[in-house]
Design a protein around this nucleic acid. Structure first.
Length: 1000
DNA sequence: CAGAAACAGTCCGATTCCGGTCA
DNA sequence: CTGACCGGAATCGGACTGTTTCT
């Protein structure tokens, strides 16, 4: 149901096409993996060298960069202007040339475009169905704008609901008023200025009023879901009716029922906030006397270094220099005199001490561990939660970061620097004015206490490495969830009310029919009439138009009842038949709607459990992108041929972002590792191949992205892009920016013009989600075994990981475990050989001397062979999966990009049951996305086969993908227990209050 | 031989902590 | 630019299973 519909643009994973890979899973993957391996210094140096020989070599690039970086950077920025002036003419000249050359191609290009995305050939009904969705919000907008303008009037009009509302929102109003008073005239001025903007915001993506937003969202889902299901059933009737009712319902609910609870103005994030402040890491414990450091110096810092001794970091010069520099700064004079060379320091004893200590901790008894655990829980209880608008919400990071040495990723220039201990005097506290201000540790004071409700953080401090602020914030999963769930339920109820209205209408129609029929009967008794009124197309053809009518005038039924006038009786007949047909259809719609509503409601609540509001909104934006991606693509294609260099660059950049899911690539200072994204790509990061490996116009990317993770990819691009790239790199040095005329700022600005809320990173969400969906469709077929489906599911996930360049370092034990698996496979093969031999013998024996006994033996042996073969197959699948999982791990792709609603899109209630069952029994999990998605998906698969209870997912699958058996063991829950579960099960656990399902 | 206990390997979710994005 | 977030790889700690050893 949550499937993204609208335009079915082709996904941009051609180069990652897993179906290709599936046919020969091992070979291509291996090479690719090697090339994709992380280029960070954590890699053994040989590998880098290998890479260097294989390809255009990143080390060279690195060296270049190191040497020229400063020069280059300043040059490129200073000279950019010059460069611009100089090249403007030539560039434009070239543009014209290229344009000239391209004129012939332009036709072909546009064709290509259409083919490439294959979205033009949309089914007609689909487009139709999309219309009302565009229409509905417009209605809403108008009404809402009215409301905004005359809030008091509105209140008066709705006295009945107003009473309730006032109670709920009095606090809020207060807060709002306070704020208004504070900001006074300023605010008003701003409002005037913003004017239209705000209205627009309200309608589009407001944070300002949760309620209508949620409602709209919710209605949109329902309509989408119903629409999809309807389409699946090929029921034109349903589609059109639904279209209609949706439009009506949306307008009605939004205008009539505006709850104001939870309504916060645009920037306001909370109205009350109370917390205990951060938890400070324990003070430094001096080493025992028997552990001596060669110098008895600023010991704590020495321990930081010692702890990292067995890490590769400490062998790096930058690290050592940074560390030693910072260390000396905090030394006393005497110490400084004494300690002059790092290499003469001996940390080994300290290291040994800590190793011993950690051993000790591992060897603790259960009781001792329990004590520690209890203590941790106590801390969590005390500091781990805050009160946000009256709800107890979990805090994401209530512990301040302990002091230590900074370890950047990749070749970070600041690695090894000292991360200082944070003192209360560094910490700013943010809470509401009337709340209890957290106590600073004894003898200390906070830097500041503020009451800013436009931000979400509870405490902040400046980190000393980069001087950037850091924050203590809420746990992302707990953000505003409670409000949303309550909201959803209420809104669903409104929808149900609307449905009831529809039913009443149907009943009225029934009355009309009865009356008409009676009138007719009276007539018929009088004089017989022919039955030519029963023309079939009266019902069928009228569907669309009739639906439209019946909805436009709200009481269509009543109106129809009025004209029971006599005309010719066959006209009457037609009328009756039409009415009856409509009635039946309406009723069908109502029934179907009702059923779906319940399902949708359940699903949404489920999703709400795991998704915060922010996440939900993120996926909403991605979904909107899906709707309008066609026009955006067209636009950037147009830009490829623009006269302006800037537009061309922007067009190509957006193309990369769209096609390859690159990150935006902000400008960075020289103080951080040299990594790039799309806009900050330099000429040296790409190579152009007119022809490579049988493909035309191939761009070879090789750069370090976020976290210094290497992005290496060879992508065939469209001819125009290729030409543009050639143009971009002309007259440029390798260290110059590829896209020198654009920045992320103006790129995002352009995107935002195409669609509100659209930024570069939305493409990642969008691409990841569509890829998953597409891959799931592609890779799974009905007749697969569960194991194969699991593999497919994982592969779909992996395709996403590849697309987003999510990688991990290969697990240390990887080779070993791989070997182990292979041995197992070998063993199994031998067993099969053995079993086959025995089978042969049994056959022979049976042939020679047939008997019951020999026959049974034969059967037994046959079964044994069969069983062994199955086991072997499973092992082999497992092997493949693990091999593929080496650097592209499922766990690595944290699925922050993936819309969980995709895999939860299932419209069978039994699956939902199973889902709840699963969720319920896994008490230790907070309901992580990965967990929910994979489990639920599997259950859906199983359910589809009607095998949920029969398939033993327990052992074999666990090894395939680590699926725990426990969740599958519960079978005693029914659909009803869903609500029970939600209202009761979680109470008692620590998380429950945060989730808000606990008793009030 | 069954069942318990100890141990190792694997996986998962949570947490940590740095590196991005974007207004 | 800075401030306020979001993203995600590494790391940590616990749960689960399979295997081996003990009773």
């Amino acid at each position: 149901m949550f499937e993204i519909t609208g335009d079915e643009g082709v996904l941009h994973v051609q180069m990652f096409d897993v179906s290709e890979r599936r046919r020969s899973p091992n070979i291509p993957l291996k090479t690719e993996r090697r090339t994709r391996s992380r280029m960070a210094n954590t890699n053994p140096p040989q590998r880098t060298q290998d890479d260097g020989q294989e390809k255009s070599s990143s080390p060279e690039i690195n060296n270049n960069k190191k040497n020229n970086k400063q020069k280059t950077r300043s040059k490129s920025s200073k000279e950019r202007h010059n460069h611009k002036e100089k090249s403007e003419q030539t560039a434009d000249q070239e543009l014209c040339d290229v344009d000239g050359n391209l004129q012939n191609e332009s036709n072909g290009d546009s064709n290509q475009a259409d083919e490439g995305h294959g979205c033009e050939s949309e089914a007609a009904p689909k487009q139709e169905a999309d219309e009302p969705q565009a229409a509905a919000p417009v209605k809403i907008k108008k009404k809402r704008v009215k409301d905004e303008k005359s809030p008091e009037k509105h209140d008066d009009k709705n006295q009945t609901s107003g009473k309730k509302r006032k109670k709920q929102t009095s606090e809020h109003d207060k807060a709002e008023k306070n704020k208004k008073i504070k900001k006074g005239g300023d605010e008003e001025d701003k409002k005037k200025k913003k004017g239209k903007k705000e209205d627009k915001k309200d309608e589009e993506s407001d944070n300002c009023s949760l309620r209508p937003q949620g409602m709209k969202t919710c209605l949109r889902f329902i309509s989408r879901f119903i629409y999809i299901s309807a389409e699946r059933n090929k029921s034109a009737l349903l589609v059109s009716s639904v279209r209609h009712y949706y439009a009506g319902a949306a307008a009605k609910t939004v205008s009539d029922c505006r709850w104001e609870e939870g309504k916060l103005s645009d920037s306001q994030k909370w109205s009350s906030l109370e917390h205990k402040g951060p938890y400070f890491p324990p003070e430094y414990e001096p080493l025992p006397d028997n552990v001596c450091f060669y110098y008895d110096a600023t010991e704590e810092i020495a321990t930081f270094y010692a702890k990292m001794l067995d890490h590769e970091y400490t062998t790096k010069e930058v690290f050592q220099n940074n560390f030693f520099g910072d260390w000396r700064e905090v030394m006393t004079k005497d110490e400084r005199k004494l300690i002059k060379t790092l290499s003469k320091c001996d940390f080994s004893q300290i290291l040994k001490y800590f190793v011993e200590k950690s051993e000790e901790r591992k060897n603790m008894t259960k009781e001792e561990k329990q004590v520690l655990k209890d203590e941790a829980n106590r801390l969590m209880e005390e500091y781990g939660y805050c009160l946000l608008d009256g709800h107890r919400e979990k805090i994401g990071n209530f512990k301040l970061e302990p002091p230590g040495l900074f370890r950047g990723r990749g070749e970070h220039p600041k690695m090894g620097k000292l991360k200082k201990r944070i003192q209360p005097e560094d910490v700013t506290i943010n809470c509401s004015e009337d709340s209890k201000v957290p106590e600073p540790p004894a003898g200390h004071q906070w830097k500041r206490v503020q009451h800013d409700n436009t931000v979400t953080w509870l405490a902040s401090w400046l980190e000393n490495i980069h001087g950037r602020p850091k924050y203590i914030m809420l746990n992302p999963s707990s953000k505003l969830k409670v409000v949303m769930i309550v909201m959803m339920v209420k809104e669903m109820m409104v929808v149900v009310v609307v449905l009831m209205g529809m039913m009443v209408k149907v009943m009225m129609m029934m009355v009309v029919v009865v009356v008409v029929v009676m009138v007719m009967m009276v007539k018929v008794i009088g004089d017989d009439c022919g039955d030519d009124g029963k023309r079939d197309d009266g019902g069928g053809g009228g569907v669309d138009g009739d639906d439209g009518k019946s909805d436009d005038d709200d009481d269509g039924g009543g109106g129809g009842g009025g004209d029971g006038d006599d005309g010719k009786s066959d006209v009457m007949m037609v009328k009756v038949v039409t009415t009856v047909v409509m009635m039946v259809k309406e009723m069908m719609v109502v029934v179907v709607l009702m059923g779906m509503m319940v399902k949708v409601m359940m699903m949404m609540m489920m999703m709400m459990v795991v998704m915060g509001e922010k996440d939900w909104q993120k996926y909403e934006t991605a979904r909107r992108l899906k709707m309008s991606v066609d026009s955006i693509r067209k636009r950037y294609r147009r830009d490829w041929k623009s006269r302006e260099m800037k537009s061309r660059q922007r067009g190509v950049a957006i193309y990369f972002i769209d096609k390859l899911a690159l990150r935006a690539g902000n400008e960075k200072d020289d103080e951080s590792a040299d990594t790039v994204g799309c806009c900050s790509l330099r000429v040296e990061h790409i190579r152009l191949h007119r022809r490579l490996d049988g493909q035309e116009h191939v761009v070879e990317f090789d750069f370090l992205g976020k976290d210094s993770i290497r992005y290496y990819n060879k992508v065939p691009v469209e001819k125009q892009v290729f030409k543009n790239l050639k143009l971009f790199i002309k007259h440029k040095d390798p260290e110059d920016d590829l896209f020198d005329r654009i920045t992320t700022i103006n790129l995002n600005k352009t995107l935002n013009e195409s669609m509100s809320g659209l930024t570069a990173k939305v493409f990642r969400t969008f691409n990841a989600s569509t890829t998953l969906q597409d891959q799931l469709n592609k890779l799974t077929t009905e007749d697969m075994t569960v194991e194969e489906k699991i593999l497919s599911y994982n592969r779909a996930n992996r395709a996403v990981a590849i697309l987003c360049n999510h990688q991990r370092a290969a697990p240390k034990t990887f080779e070993k475990s791989m070997q182990l698996l292979q041995e197992k496979i070998q063993k199994k093969k031998e067993q099969i050989e053995e079993a086959k031999k025995e089978l042969k013998e049994a056959k022979k024996a049976h042939k020679d001397a047939p008997s019951d006994k020999s026959k049974k033996l034969l059967e037994k042996k046959e079964k044994a062979v069969q069983r062994l073969c199955e086991q072997l197959k499973k092992l082999q699948l497992q092997e493949t999966d693990r091999e593929e999982n080496k650097v592209i791990a499922l766990g690595t792709s944290k699925l922050n990009y993936l819309d969980p609603r995709i895999t939860v899109a299932c419209d069978s209630c039994p699956s939902l049951n199973a889902f709840i069952r699963t969720h319920k029994s896994h008490k230790n999990s907070g309901g992580g996305l990965q967990y929910l998605i994979s489990r639920f998906y599997l259950l859906v698969l199983n359910e589809a086969e009607g095998a949920a209870r029969n398939v033993n997912v327990t052992r074999e699958s666990r090894d395939l993908e680590g699926i725990s058996a426990a969740p599958f063991l519960r079978t005693d829950l029914t659909i009803d227990s869903a609500f029970h579960f939600m209202s009761s099960e979680r109470s008692g656990s620590a998380a429950e209050t945060a989730v808000g399902f606990g008793p009030d």
